[in-house]
Write a protein that binds this DNA or RNA. Structure first.
Lengths: 350, 350
DNA sequence: TTGTAAGCGTTATCAT
DNA sequence: ATGATAACGCTTACAA
């Protein structure tokens, strides 16, 4: 039994033929073992598996990719205005892929470009990707989903609400979460609450805005148009927009920003004007990114379970491949929850 | 001339055979064109190239990978305590790869695990990676570099100083940059300056610490041992360590933190104690990550040209492949520079 | 249940 | 300078 292949050296690459010879079977039989073919004699399988284990043989992914017409790569396609969330997306998907034969290929794209669609198409077809995870705002593009279907590329979309079937979608309930957060503000006694919404055309922005308006309506609070501003999910835009909100008279006593970056901008704007937070202005953000605990005061925010969502997306994608039934049922809906920190207080009297 | 292949549809995949037939040459000749073989008749090449352009033919990467024994994938291996910098690393490498046939595969690892080395070995050999970019602190591991060499995997290391030859290394001059920053603090009048250094065993931490001590020595300022603390490059550790520095009597009038996360922790600690920044305490960080402009006051810091360094690393890696001589000479040394913002002022009188 | 032969799309060898 | 033919390592018919 040749077995110098244990644990070291430049590895004189074993092939399926070597294993077949050692096991005294045909390469096809080895192939069947690798691919978990059901029609195989128990003993034969056991014998081959033993050899594989002893030798540490690993099938060549390139050869499999060529023969199968598909690679063992998962693509992560994104064009996210909020750099902070990119990391947690990656973390989640990587967690799902950990220990499998899949690797993660990342691909930032420019959704503004007229070529996005072709870019992504080339990406998936050229690399013959096993599947892709698509995150907001790109995940809101139905044409993209259709295109991936046409190309025979599996996909899972991440979103702030559900707009595709369970096999293709992992979502959070942003609307409810924001409604809760807004009710919390109202319960603290706030009545003039400003909203710095996300970019027009973003589903997440719309969901969060809807939740906000819903809670206000429920409480019978009218929302003057001047108290709402559409921005770009960036620190700078939060800062800029907060300026105009603070110019209003009477001034809002609280501001809900549709993400933490903008909330940090609001806090900064308040500081620039010498407005004390939370005494004179309460702030609530969304995402629970690290920045919330690095600024002063730490920001009350809505925790968005990004990592868990991405992991679910990854599992959903490869679930079919691994055949592990346990993983096929990766959950499709996740709940965000309010995290109370230091940026909210009852409004100043008067 | 068949040319329905222009711009749409599920793409009935062209192969090298199709191109060969259309051009009236053998597939080997087409292959030569693809691989820029020098021994080719100008006209033959032109003819084949024309067909390729017309049809939009793209060679199948999987087949090439199998035949060549190497993939067109670049790996990014990291185990970075500072999440913030991961993004800029990725951005830089992605920029270098943009428009090429290479894709980026990311691979976080746990350098604490006894299996790291084998993990990475499996990663590069299984995927037959074209090459990998290794970032600190993993890039300081010489055994890792040796192993990659053995496996025939190209690599480029990123570091805070140069410790490998120019082909394998892209570095910054952290020591000089920190010395400059420290001199700036001294020029402002500070004499009791605390240092919150990076983790023991990190080359970047050592370089930055050396720069700090160098500047102090040059100015004839003795550095009490109590003014130096080793920490983990995290916000929490910066916060914790700052507490003990602020307990000293007399208190330091300035603190240099070896990265921005820790500097943010210092700022937070000061706020907790009601110590005004920069009036009563000056702070300087390192990296110039986004957080520096989101806290109040914005942090003076040393800009670390991460994106440019990573791009250079990527170019260096694929330079040999693209054959573009212009890119082979990607620079190997980058300078960090001081960015003055609001967290430094002369020490309070007395 | 297992094996044989023929690909998958490219590159390398060795002629010519 | 170009082409026929055999790899590359695996999978899918199709037999046996």
């Amino acid at each position: 039994m040749a077995k110098q292949q244990q644990e070291e050296g430049p590895a004189p690459k074993l092939t399926i033929n070597d294993i077949a010879r050692m096991a005294g079977v045909s390469k096809k039989t080895v192939s069947r073992v690798i691919n978990r073919s059901p029609l195989l004699n128990r003993q034969t399988r056991a014998k081959v598996e033993a050899i594989i284990r002893e030798t540490g043989y690993v099938p060549n992914p390139q050869a499999r990719a060529l023969a199968l017409g598909r690679n063992f790569l998962i693509g992560l396609v994104y064009d996210n205005p909020n750099l902070q969330t990119i990391l947690s997306m990656q973390r989640g998907v990587l967690e799902a892929l950990h220990g499998t034969e899949f690797e993660l290929v990342i691909r930032p794209v420019d959704r503004g470009s007229p070529m996005v669609m072709d870019d992504i198409r080339r990406f998936v077809t050229r690399q013959r990707l096993f599947g892709v995870v698509i995150v907001p705002p790109l995940s809101e593009n139905d044409a993209l989903a259709r295109m991936l279907d046409e190309e025979g590329c599996r996909y899972v979309r991440i979103g702030s609400a559900t707009w595709d079937d369970a096999d293709h979608m992992v979502a959070s309930n942003d609307r409810d979460a924001v409604a809760d957060a807004t009710r919390y503000l109202i319960a603290q006694g706030h009545r003039r609450i400003g909203l710095i919404a996300g970019p027009h055309g973003f589903r997440s922005a719309q969901e969060r805005r809807d939740g906000f308006e819903l809670a206000l309506a429920d409480a019978g609070i009218a929302l003057p148009r001047s108290l709402v501003a559409d921005r770009h999910y960036t620190f700078e835009s939060g800062l800029a927009e907060c300026e105009s909100l603070l110019d209003l008279s009477p001034r809002p006593t609280a501001i809900f920003a549709a993400n933490d970056e903008m909330a940090a901008g609001v806090l900064y704007a308040a500081r620039l004007r010498g407005i004390a937070v939370p005494e004179q202005l309460s702030i609530v953000g969304f995402d629970d990114t690290p920045i919330t605990t690095r600024v002063w005061p730490p920001l009350t925010t809505v925790r968005w379970p990004t990592v868990a969502m991405r992991r679910a997306a990854g599992l959903k994608l490869i679930g079919a491949a691994t055949g592990e039934d346990a993983e096929v049922g990766a959950p499709s809906m996740f709940s965000s929850m309010l995290i109370r920190r230091g940026s909210v207080a009852p409004p100043a009297a008067g």
